[in-house]
Design a protein around this nucleic acid. Structure first.
Lengths: 117, 117
DNA sequence: AACCTTTACATAGACTGTCAAGGGAAGTGG
DNA sequence: CCACTTCCCTTGACAGTCTATGTAAAGGTT
């Protein structure tokens, strides 16, 4: 899980989804699993966060959906990036990168009062 | 500013404040400025986010306040970390670090489909 | 049948950030 | 002395995203 009571995910979930979909169409359940595995369980996306996120991203035209049958023979809504979605992914990934650098700049352990270590 | 409509800050603001205060007591205005300068303007904390954050952190016992006079001869509420605040800082900094690594693992550019670059 | 897995959705609620507005006190330039 | 700017704090309305929790249904397995 993403740890205790932290809302770090806030604002980041969408980029993560976009990136996941950049590898090809996938359904919600698959996206969550992929993210979880990829990050060794550190990123545990709740269904209640995931599906609403997918819905609003579709509404905004970043992804499109299509019902299909999975290899496990179940109905699933496959999402894929649109042109806008790809652009969005590029922009957001850069924005995240800048933001993360800034935070790292502040939190950098090497620049800590001794007691804080 | 932290860029367009991103809520990346969500959940991160408190660690940033804690870390800033780890250098010594400081007032709100000073905290915001310090963060802004330290990150070349990338982190622009709104007063409407900052002060409420300080208030709730005080309510939770992570920081304590004391009115004093600044070197510019103005009244200001100086905040400093409590024992709980220091612990919180350590824990949250670690949590952030893990989270950021996980996100980086996913967004890593070197692992991108060619069109996404 | 009973049960687990896969897949999707919805509602309620809490939390936290933005926006916008306001106020007061100390300098500074005229 | 007045106007203006800088410093510093506060709060309320509002919006957005996440969590918690529960529902649903179909396929596979035993």
């Amino acid at each position: 899980m993403a740890s205790d009571g932290h809302l770090f995910l806030q604002g980041t979930l969408e980029v993560l989804i976009l990136k996941t979909l950049s590898w090809g169409p996938m359904h919600g359940y698959g996206i969550a699993n992929w993210l979880g595995e990829r990050t060794d369980g550190e990123l545990d996306i709740e269904e209640g966060s995931l599906y609403p996120a997918l819905h609003r991203m579709e509404r905004r035209g970043w992804i499109e959906a299509e019902w299909q049958i999975t290899d496990k023979n179940r109905r699933a809504k496959y999402y894929q990036l649109t042109r806008d979605g790809r652009k969005r992914l590029r922009d957001d990934a850069k924005a995240w990168s800048r933001f993360a650098s800034a935070v790292a700049e502040v939190l950098d352990e090497s620049k800590a009062p001794s007691w804080a270590t």
